[in-house]
Write a protein that binds this DNA or RNA. Structure first.
Lengths: 153, 153
DNA sequence: TATTGTTATACTCTATAACTATA
DNA sequence: TATAGTTATAGAGTATAACAATA
């Protein structure tokens, strides 16, 4: 889209945001994890014990898609499914110690990523940027910490 | 990715950017155009007469992918392929009057989209946001007006 | 009969590589 | 032999819908 001169805020946001997402995906590939898997891991850590249906609903994705993501994390021992004894249909999702350790590494990578992306802004400018982006996110109905890319479009 | 509290700049950028891109795609669907088609249309308008190979290289996509995009725009009469008489292998890409008209509508939609996305910022804040984003884009090697989503990852 | 999780199927998007026409 | 453009094939990712287990 080479349309406006200079480009508008929305185009810049989309372009820089796509770049940020691509660079983050590159960095975490080192851990053999994808951004969707990491988003799920973070959500399970933040609110453990939820059913797959509940988590899928929060992320705005079909439950069938969640199965594969949980499989990948469970195969590696980062999360576990615990059957509810009173209603054996439910699989409560919990993070493991290995999962917590992985989240620690991810947080470090995230900070490095943040610094590299915003190295052309000083610390006060970064704060201003975060303020503006948070305000837009809230105004646009984005839930904090949930990437809208999960949603059905 | 619900990892940091509060979320870092990179995550906010990726989330807000994905939201911006999704809303823009919704708006231009009314014209029966997709964002990649629009990006190509804008590039052809900005530098007409280039070969498909050259355009594919600028956008960072395989030439085979460009064929389908050009087909879609040419079928609708928005662009045209002109064979180079001295080297008949080359197809120079040009925008048509209908293509220019479509770009006009797209620009209007883009401004509306920009206003809706940034309605929680005043005009001076929007200017600051554009400044910061432009600086990040330049620092990160993003070429002005080219969406990095075209690139091979 | 309703609900949770899973699997099966089909569809979209894309890259790679084969092909053609021109040089 | 080399290059521009095109077509064919195959792979990834995803949604929809069918299915099995449990209530």
């Amino acid at each position: 889209m080479a349309l406006e001169n200079p480009p508008g805020s929305a185009f810049l946001l989309a372009a820089v945001g796509a770049h940020a997402a691509a660079r983050f995906a590159e960095r975490v590939a080192e851990l053999d994890l994808t951004p969707p898997q990491i988003g799920l891991l973070g959500l399970i850590a933040a609110s453990p014990g939820q059913s797959q249906q509940a988590v899928a609903h929060v992320l705005g994705m079909p439950p069938s898609r969640l199965v594969g993501l949980v499989d990948a994390l469970a195969d590696r021992g980062l999360v576990e499914r615990r059957r509810n004894p009173t209603d054996r249909r439910l699989h409560a999702l919990h993070i493991t110690d290995a999962g917590q350790a992985a989240l620690g590494k991810i947080a470090t990578i995230g900070r490095e990523h943040d610094d590299a992306l915003c190295r052309s802004l000083d610390s006060s400018e970064r704060e201003t940027l975060r303020t503006f982006l948070s305000r837009i996110a809230a105004d646009q109905g984005l839930r904090p910490g949930i990437h809208p890319g999960y949603r059905t479009v």
